[in-house]
Computed example of a mutant assay.
Amino acid sequence: MKLQLFRNATLKLDYAGRIVLIDPYFAPKHSLESFTGRSLNPMVELPVDIEDILDGVELVIVSHLHDDHFDSVAMERVPKHLPLFCQPGDEATIREAGFADVTPLAGRATWEGLTLTRREGSHGLGAVVELMGSVMGFSLEAAGEPSLYWAGDTVLYPPVAEVIRETKPDIIVTHSCGARWDGDLIVMDAEQTIAVCEASQNTIVIATHMEALDHATVSRLDLRKAAQARGIAPSRLLIPHDGETVVLGKS
């Protein structure tokens, strides 16, 4: 399996011979509003051209419709004929944008040898969840490949811990920037990411969704220092830079 991080949550997977694009966020640097007044968003440019990101893509997965996961540029540039999985409730909006092959992932689905399973997520806890709206994560499996749990825009809460405990994934992808909305944590921070590592001793955790948005509170360096202080080896917690490719095999 090859996983390339582009920016924020945008990933490209080469998995079982198929190329999957996750949560495309293509907006130019500083083209969108600030969340906190600290900076316009996104705070950094994409590391490669959009054409390079889209090259070879066969399947698209969109976890939810926040602009930093599927923005207007991506809606325009992603080829409309590509099959696309989304959370139930988002399919009408995506079809209205011109996409012809949209499937809400309500439970488990198969596509060209890949098995996708929808996982619950909570974009914060308490009152902020209603404001943030519903989100999803997913598990991905295929013969000969490491099992992957992409947690998505969620904090660490019991359903996430249950997926880790019951499925024992080889790889977990977390969103670990500690983003906050009106003071409420809405994705994992350093402490929660370390807790994921500690809950899954045989799993490699890949921390993404970092250093791209102005409501983030945790940098890559912050996370690495916190992990080292807790004895988490760099080989168990990968923190890729934008544009970096990670290659992993089945454990």
Rank of each mutant, 00 (worst) to 15 (best):
T117L: 06
D67Y: 04
S31I: 09
L140W: 13
S39C: 08
T103V: 12
I94V: 13
I171F: 04
Q87P: 08
K80E: 12
L65W: 11
A142P: 02
L221D: 14
R119L: 15
M188Q: 06
E244F: 08
I53N: 06
C197L: 14
L185P: 03
V44R: 02
D170G: 06
L148C: 02
D55W: 07
L54K: 04
T93Y: 00
E244S: 06
S63A: 13
T93E: 09
L140P: 09
A100M: 11
S219V: 10
L105D: 04
A9I: 02
D101Y: 08
I171L: 10
K168W: 06
N8A: 02
G37P: 05
W181M: 15
A233P: 14
L114C: 06
W150Y: 15
E33N: 08
S200T: 07
Q201R: 15
C177D: 13
W150F: 12
E130Q: 14
T110E: 15
M188C: 07
R118M: 10
G152V: 09
Q192H: 01
A179G: 11
K168F: 10
V173Q: 00
Y15C: 00
S139A: 12
R7V: 09
L59T: 02
Q4F: 05
G98Q: 11
P158F: 07
H209K: 09
D14M: 07
D49Y: 07
G243P: 02
S72K: 09
K29D: 13
R7K: 06
E58Q: 09
V173K: 01
I19P: 00
